[in-house]
Design a protein around this nucleic acid. Structure first.
Length: 878
RNA sequence: GGGCGGUUAGCUCAGUGGUAGAGCACUUGCUCGACACGCAAGGGGUCACAAGUUCAAUCCUUGUACCGCCCA
């Protein structure tokens, strides 16, 4: 028996544990079933589930469950990411509280602590995914630092190195002065903010009267200037090109050079060139072979390359000191307030310093080429398509990918050095030693790899690569990747590059980019704004099914999701509705359909509900197959509530409760349809459907909805005739209800219905649905007449006039105005159609179907108008 | 500065070259033996603006305005 009310809390955990225990999520590599594979974007092991994860997880689970039911061997590959910087920061902070620094601890001990932390706390997010009902194959869960991954990373690194696609280079990197590591371009957050532009006079060598004024936002870097650049076409400075300036505060002379980089329109037209601390200047420096003078240490303090009084000074303190000195020397001519962008580290929040160091790089340009082609030729398709442009834009202008990080937590780079600086790249120290030769002392590179390097291998490393496993053979390439667009460059593009390079095949056929989940006002959710909705709180409050359904219903392509609790409430109500529909079936003994054949049904309402069910099923399939998740949800919702509950169950009431001739077929159809609904809804709302499924019948061992087959029938069960008949019945009932409400007929009052001008079919239908009509339209009796009694209300459905003889209740004025209004509406329609049909060009050019449709619409409108006019006339005579 | 997206009912959003839709909110009426997390009936829209293509534009094209995002 189903409880009076549905309480999600009581059932969710129970079912989840049963599924997991029974191995319902497992893929079966040895089966002959066609594979369906999704790679879960591995969340950071430090993370906890936020709304974005909830959306991502729900959509993947919908697809996985759906395909599993359709008979695919579904593999949803789960795992977590070691998240180098984030995790190291978490553990460091923890140690800080104990008053221990990682340096005191040493690398080895620190890493032990990180692993300890991972074992204890790293499982949060995967537990939270379970609460949502996610069904990845947990048995195959991976971690980007586990042994298999490490093997894959070593192999990939060595192989790319041998192919010349990984190399070491000294160039400017984004340096994080707080985390003391390089970071990639993508980890830099360019923030627009207020700042100042200082205009500084540099004296020309040998001409005490003459200066050249340069403008800069970073005066402290002047100590590292190698030149002053002017535009070659700038008349003002033509004579100075080739001369030198005496760099203030130093004893250095630097040349004035001509370079396009100097914009004559901007500032004074002359710019200082600091190749070791600015990306543009670095390029200029390379073009002109200028010295690159690094003036800072790893902490961002000025180093020994600057005059003594500034040495050891923090970069922004140095700025103040330098400006004060320039002011004193009367070299500071102007200070402007400006708006400019400043680079911040996305993890540390500190201002990033362009810094000249030696790092490891991936030759992304070479790897990107086939990855671009794969999308151009449609081997991989983005949904929505517009993201392909974003992908192209970045990939076509891709920069070398800096993959070394000066961290401890991560895959240590498999490169060893001897004391002469020779590099030996190998998968193990033994092999490196072999390369170096016995007796040569070698030392491993202390740096680790960018987290995204291991993530880039995810689609094949999780399947056993570099070994040739049956899983790799069967599940690569994967079917679809679902992810947020925020990691399209970080992750998607890099998986494309690595997948094609190592597997000779794109990693996924489709990339579905889902939207960002925002708050109800459209603001990005963030801890500092305090507008974060926790998916687990929502699950507690409304049930996991409601949250899932909301996510799916809101996942329209191409727009961000504004999450509101009102919407959740609505879908919670939907779950309750389903629950109550099942209770109705239970109470009416409509739970058994053994031996039922939907193709053998004869009673029109049954034929119709089957027709509608098939239509909904097809709509849902089409929507899911084209990643229009919101449409799938709407189709399911509309059918279950709007058709099955609102109409079919109501139709069934008189039959079931009065035990008519159709009772058996209706009972079976109801029961059957309910079970089909449970299947259809299972990928959306797995918990409540499983619970109802288990409650309404005695199920055998292992008979769980999660393992059921998707609906297999289709068009052969469509029945247009029955559909038309039921549409007519609904129209009659709605029309009577509407008129009753308009005329303020008391809801409880049972009234008489008279029909005029009905054709044989209608007469027959009226007869066969007599009890349904009486119940649903609250009628006392139904009869046929040739003329309406005086003072009755009339309306029209099809060819027949519907008459409600309620002269005693009727408000004449109100009824007259109702009829006039209805006629006026028809008049407008008729006028519009006439205008079209009267237009020769329309008649000549429009397709015949369109013209015919207009004509038939006009006919209907005219006939209806005619009947209403008669009704009005009769009313006026009364 | 470059690119992309958005502008449709009070709100949040679907959608289509030929009758403009949903959910929520709103109004009115309902203890019709599943359900008030409900039932029934309603009201509410120059589909941002302008021009063009078309027999026909909310939908296609171009431009404008405003909003948002990404990149520099």
């Amino acid at each position: 028996m189903l409880d009076k009310t549905f309480n999600p809390k009581n059932i969710e955990e129970k079912h989840y544990q049963a599924w997991e225990k029974a191995g319902d999520f497992a893929c079966s590599p040895e089966s002959s079933k066609e594979p369906y594979t999704i790679m879960m974007p591995p969340p950071n092991v430090t993370g906890s589930l936020h709304m974005g994860h909830a959306l991502n997880t729900t959509l993947q689970d919908l697809l996985t469950r759906y395909h599993r039911m359709k008979g695919y061997d579904a593999l949803w590959q789960a795992g977590t990411d070691h998240a180098g910087i984030a995790t190291q920061m978490v553990v460091e902070r923890m140690l800080d509280k104990e008053g221990i620094s990682r340096h005191e601890l040493g690398r080895e001990k620190f890493l032990e602590k990180v692993w300890e932390w991972k074992e204890e706390s790293g499982g949060t997010i995967v537990r939270q995914m379970r609460a949502l009902g996610a069904t990845p194959d947990w048995e195959r869960e991976r971690f980007t630092m586990d042994a298999g991954m490490s093997k894959a990373v070593l192999k990939a690194f060595v192989s790319l190195y041998k192919d010349g696609l990984i190399y070491k280079d000294t160039r400017l990197v984004n340096w994080d002065t707080k985390l003391l590591t390089s970071i990639s371009d993508l980890e830099v957050d360019a923030r627009d903010q207020k700042g100042k532009m200082w205009h500084i006079r540099y004296p020309i060598e040998g001409k005490t009267e003459r200066f050249i004024t340069v403008a800069t936002t970073r005066p402290e870097t002047m100590l590292g200037d190698s030149a002053v650049a002017v535009n070659p076409d700038d008349e003002r400075y033509k004579d100075l090109i080739g001369k030198s300036v005496a760099l203030p505060l130093t004893d250095r002379l630097i040349p004035i050079i001509a370079d396009e980089h100097a914009d004559p329109e901007a500032g004074s037209g002359a710019v200082k060139i600091t190749p070791a601390h600015d990306f543009n200047d670095y390029e200029v420096g390379k073009r002109h072979d200028l010295p690159m003078m690094n003036i800072m240490d790893i902490h961002g303090n000025l180093n020994d390359n600057v005059p003594e009084e500034y040495r050891g000074m923090e970069r922004f303190k140095a700025r103040k000191a330098i400006l004060a000195e320039l002011e004193a020397l009367d070299l500071l001519v102007k200070i402007e307030d400006i708006q400019h962008t400043v680079p911040y580290g996305d993890r540390s929040g500190t201002i990033i310093e362009p810094y000249l160091t030696e790092q490891w790089y991936v030759d992304a340009k070479t790897l990107a080429k086939p990855a671009i082609e794969a999308v151009e030729t449609g081997k991989t398709v983005f949904v929505p398509k517009q993201w392909e442009n974003t992908y192209y834009a970045w990939m076509r202008d891709i920069q070398p990918w800096c993959i070394s990080r000066q961290l401890w937590w991560g895959h240590q780079i498999p490169a060893w050095y001897d004391k002469d600086g020779n590099i030996y790249v190998a998968e193990s120290e033994e092999q490196a030693q072999e390369q170096a030769g016995q007796g040569v002392s070698i030392k491993r590179d202390p740096d680790v790899l960018d987290t995204w390097f291991s993530s880039a291998l995810w689609p094949f490393s999780t399947l056993g690569w570099p070994d040739k496993t049956p899983e790799l053979e069967k599940y690569y390439q994967t079917d679809v990747l679902l992810t947020g667009f925020d990691i399209i460059f970080f992750w998607v593009a890099r998986m494309m590059m690595m997948g094609i390079h190592f597997m000779d095949e794109v990693p996924f056929k489709t990339v579905y980019m889902h939207a960002l989940v925002r708050d109800s006002k459209g603001q990005k959710m963030s801890k500092s704004k305090g507008n974060v909705l926790d998916p687990l709180d929502l699950t507690d409050k409304y049930g996991a099914d409601a949250l899932r359904f909301t996510m799916i219903a809101m996942a329209a392509q191409g727009r961000d999701i504004k999450m509101s609790e009102q919407r959740l409430e609505g879908y919670r109500n939907f779950a309750t509705k389903l629950w109550n529909a099942a209770r109705y079936c239970e109470m009416n003994d409509a739970l058994c359909h053994d031996g039922f054949d939907p193709a053998a049904v004869t009673y029109a309402p049954n034929l119709w509900v089957i027709h509608e069910l098939v239509t909904a099923k097809k709509d849902i399939e089409k929507a899911i197959d084209s990643y229009r998740f919101n449409e799938a949800a709407n189709a399911a919702y509309g059918f279950v509530w709007g058709t099955f509950c609102d109409w079919y169950l109501e139709f069934s009431k008189p039959v079931l409760q009065d035990g008519g001739a159709q009772a058996k077929e209706v009972r079976q159809t109801t029961s059957w349809a309910l079970e089909q609904i449970l299947v259809l809804l299972n990928p959306f709302m797995p918990f409540i459907t499983e619970e109802i499924y288990a409650s309404i019948a005695k199920r055998g061992e292992g008979d769980r909805l999660i393992n059921s087959s998707w609906l297999k029938y289709g068009d052969e069960l469509l029945n247009e005739g029955a559909a038309k008949e039921m549409e007519w019945l609904k129209a009659v009932i709605s029309e009577i209800r509407s008129v009753r409400a308009d005329m303020h007929v008391p809801a409880a009052a049972k009234i008489q219905l008279l029909i005029k001008g009905a054709n044989a079919q209608t007469v027959e239908r009226i007869k066969s649905y007599d009890d349904v009509l009486c119940r649903m339209a609250r009628l006392e009796s139904i009869g046929h007449v040739d003329a309406a009694p005086k003072g009755s209300i009339q309306t029209v459905v099809g060819e027949a006039t519907i008459i409600l003889p309620i002269a005693d209740i009727i408000d004449l004025t109100a009824e007259k105005s109702r009829l006039s209004k209805a006629m006026a509406k028809l008049d407008i329609d008729i006028k519009k159609i006439d205008a079209k049909l009267g237009n020769d060009k329309f008649v000549q050019n429009a397709p015949i179907e369109v013209i015919e449709e207009q004509k038939s619409r006009k006919g209907e409108a005219l006939s209806k108008r005619d009947k209403l006019e008669q009704a009005l006339k009769q009313l006026e005579e009364a």
